[in-house]
Simulated scan of single mutants.
Amino acid sequence: MKQIIPLVVAALVGVGAYFAFVHEPNATVAQVASTELAAPSSSESVNNADGDADAEVDISTIPDILIGNPDAPVTVIEYASPTCPHCATFANEVLPGFIEAYVDTGKVYLITRPFVRNVLDAAVFMLAEAAGPDNYHNVVATYFKTQTTWASSDKPRDAILEIAKQLGFTQETFDAALTNQALFTGMEAVREQALNDFGLVGTPTFYVNGKTLSGDKTLEELAAAIDPLVPADFVAPTPVAADAMAPAADAMAPADAMAPAADAMAPAAQ
């Protein structure tokens, strides 16, 4: 399977506009670790003519990030990208209320998956994985909160590093996180699975018990899809501990190991 890093295409689709993408072949993990990391362009585009749709992919190196009640009547899978403005809006403005209303009450089992559109996305997700499962959401949430600072910087690698240091990374652990080839390859596999198997066409995308919801969604729009799936006699279990998906107040020390891989749940074909 080729090393592929997607380029951003600022394509607004319909009323609920969201970012679509294509990808450029032959980029490697070295570009993620490079001091030449480039900010995503709002106008770059290439033809998606060199993909590996038939290539075998291995997602076992990328564990799903799981929050909530595994026996919940509704499973929501979210694909998001750190450089996607609509993903940031959802993470910053909608997700906390969604977790409170649906995840903490045991109604929804939330699975989040990385969708890498460019080298900056890859860098953020690689740092989150290096921080360990307990800190993963705080790392991603911090970069969503500060997206306008680092994603538009003329020196994005330096900006990402400064934020990483606030999260407990050192120069050494930062560099190590960005040279994890197995993780980089696994994230490519997750992206290719979403594109080729699940028909994902932009971020953010949600799968609600297999039903596809594309684009940024309000809490009310998600509720309209979820509420009919929750039995009228549903009784909430013992409160489920869930991360608030907010930036940590204290610095976090990166973990040495990734969480064990979880079984992949494939969205139902539509």
Rank of each mutant, 00 (worst) to 15 (best):
R157Y: 03
A249G: 15
K165P: 02
D263V: 14
P254W: 07
N47V: 07
L110D: 03
K211R: 12
T212S: 10
S45M: 04
Y207A: 04
T203H: 07
V240K: 15
V140N: 04
V119S: 13
K155E: 14
I59Q: 04
Y109H: 11
M1S: 00
E220A: 15
A264E: 09
D64R: 12
I62V: 13
E172R: 07
A246R: 15
P96R: 00
L66H: 11
F206Q: 06
D250T: 14
P85D: 00
D216L: 03
E24H: 05
K155M: 12
A72Q: 08
T35M: 04
T142G: 01
A224E: 15
A244V: 09
M245E: 13
E172I: 08
M265S: 12
P40W: 00
D54Q: 13
E44A: 09
G97Y: 01
A10T: 01
A164W: 02
V208K: 03
A11D: 01
I226C: 05
F144I: 01
V94T: 15
F21S: 05
N48Q: 08
D216G: 08
P82N: 04
V124K: 03
S153M: 10
S41Y: 10
A80T: 05
L127W: 11
E192G: 07
F98M: 05
P267F: 15
F90E: 05
P70M: 12
L127E: 09
L161F: 10
G132V: 14
T203N: 01
A177T: 08
A27F: 00
P231G: 12
N92I: 00
I226P: 08
K217S: 04
D71T: 11
P63E: 03
V140R: 04
A259P: 07
L183Y: 08
E56M: 10
P204Q: 08
P85K: 01
S34D: 12
A244I: 05
D50W: 11
D64C: 01
A182L: 03
F98W: 08
Y18T: 02
G68D: 13
A232K: 15
D50S: 08
P73Y: 06
A101R: 13
T105A: 08
A259R: 09
P247N: 13
L200D: 05
A72M: 10
A248P: 11
T205V: 14
A269G: 06
L110W: 15
L213F: 12
A248T: 09
M245K: 15
D243F: 05
G210A: 09
M187A: 06
Q166C: 06
A159L: 09
A55T: 05
S45P: 00
F19C: 01
G199P: 10
V32K: 00
P85I: 05
T28E: 00
V201I: 12
D233A: 13
L183D: 12
